[in-house]
Simulated scan of single mutants.
Amino acid sequence: MTAHEVVIRDIAAMTVACVDHTGPYMQIGKAFDLLIGGLASRGLLSPGTRMVGIYYDDPGIVPEAELRSKAGAMLPRDIEIVPPLSLTQIRGGEYAVLRHAGPYSDLHATYEWLYGTWLVQSGREAADAPAFEEYLNNPKETAPADLLTEICLPLA
């Protein structure tokens, strides 16, 4: 396994514009398409728009068809929200942040290491809040091997 470096970081609370997704996490791209289309049609996307995915359920426990997640965008200002968009609050506080390099399809192994090895050995506990991912480059313009994703695990 590739060496992983976890950084403990304080992350400020943030409100994100989101589109809900239920089903396999690897199909959240459909929710991102709706989100991006909705924001683009209102002139709310810029090259610096930060995109996040919020993941609520453990795919090892919850049936794939029932997994809950949200495709989100951090916006520089408040906007009027119209369906299918909604606003979601990401809690502020201490997070274990792990950068994943490579295709999204390999994220599950990184999560397994973060929760199953690092968290167990760290002496820390996960907070009762969802993990989120921040996507540092655009999958429509970046080869899968070059994708960068920060996994943010909230700590108690």
Rank of each mutant, 00 (worst) to 15 (best):
P24E: 15
A12V: 11
D20A: 15
V120Y: 10
R68A: 09
L114Y: 05
G123M: 07
L119I: 10
C18D: 00
A71F: 02
R9A: 09
A40V: 00
I81H: 09
T117V: 15
D106W: 01
M51N: 06
A3Q: 13
L67Q: 04
Y55W: 13
E134T: 15
G29R: 04
R91A: 14
T22M: 07
A109K: 13
P103G: 15
L34E: 02
Y115H: 11
Y55S: 12
V7I: 12
R99A: 02
L136H: 02
P63H: 09
E66L: 14
I151Q: 05
T117K: 12
G53D: 07
L85M: 14
A31M: 02
P103W: 06
A3G: 08
T149G: 04
M1T: 05
T142F: 00
G48K: 14
P154K: 08
L155R: 05
G29I: 07
L67M: 12
R50W: 03
L153V: 11
A12D: 15
H4A: 13
Y135H: 13
G102A: 04
V19E: 00
E80S: 13
G29V: 08
P130G: 06
I61R: 10
P59M: 08
D33A: 15
Q27F: 07
E66H: 13
G123L: 04
E133I: 07
G60A: 08
M74P: 01
A31N: 02
E133S: 14
Q121S: 14
A131C: 14
T110F: 06
M14F: 05
V19L: 02
I36K: 04
D106M: 06
N138W: 00
M26I: 13
A3W: 06
